[in-house]
Amino acid sequence: MVNQQALATTAQHLSKEAEFESLVLRYQNSVYNIALRMSGNPDEAQDLAQEAFVRAYRSFDSYRRGTSFDKWLYRIVTNLYIDEVRRRRRKPYIESLDERITMSGGDEVDREIPDLSHSPETVYDREHLDKCIQSALAELPPEFRMAVILCDIEGFSYEEIAQIMGTSIGTVRSRIHRGRRGLRERIAPCFPARSGEVRPT
């Protein structure tokens, strides 16, 4: 005998999974990117992003349809990332330049490293600057780091960040101020021309 209740529940489960899949595909880049900026390590970022989505799925029933899904999701993301990043502490991502790269087809190739050490453009090289910012971000306390990432990379307002982080707007303002101040000091060497202009306070 076919259990109608079980069939209905299974159908509900499948539609829930389909709905969730579309949301994951929509937000996965952003969630992964925040994880990468928070951890500074691609492997760890992937773990964090996966864990965030699994947690979101588990409490997906508590998400009220019609409300902002991204805020709800980023709240889970924020709580998880801050806790995890603090727990794991900073494990710097070290990648050997001599290590051979495995291609998608399974072939291994040598890494090509252009010698740009004498080029003045190196300083302004996008990649170099990103690494500089990334290492500066890693020096910040996780709460400051997350507030700055949500503001500058994800483009949220202070009010939205306060909702996501579960704090007051005043706390958000303070975290961003102190986070940016830390970044200014650390990134300044990456802008030699600019840093020269900053007069001592």
């Binding site: 880049n29 992003a49 990649e127 990432i149 500058d152």
Partner: peptide, 9 residues
């Protein structure tokens, strides 16, 4: 920060 190259997921 805003112009950091987004890493593909």
């Amino acid at each position: 920060l805003g112009s950091m190259a987004p890493s593909p997921c």
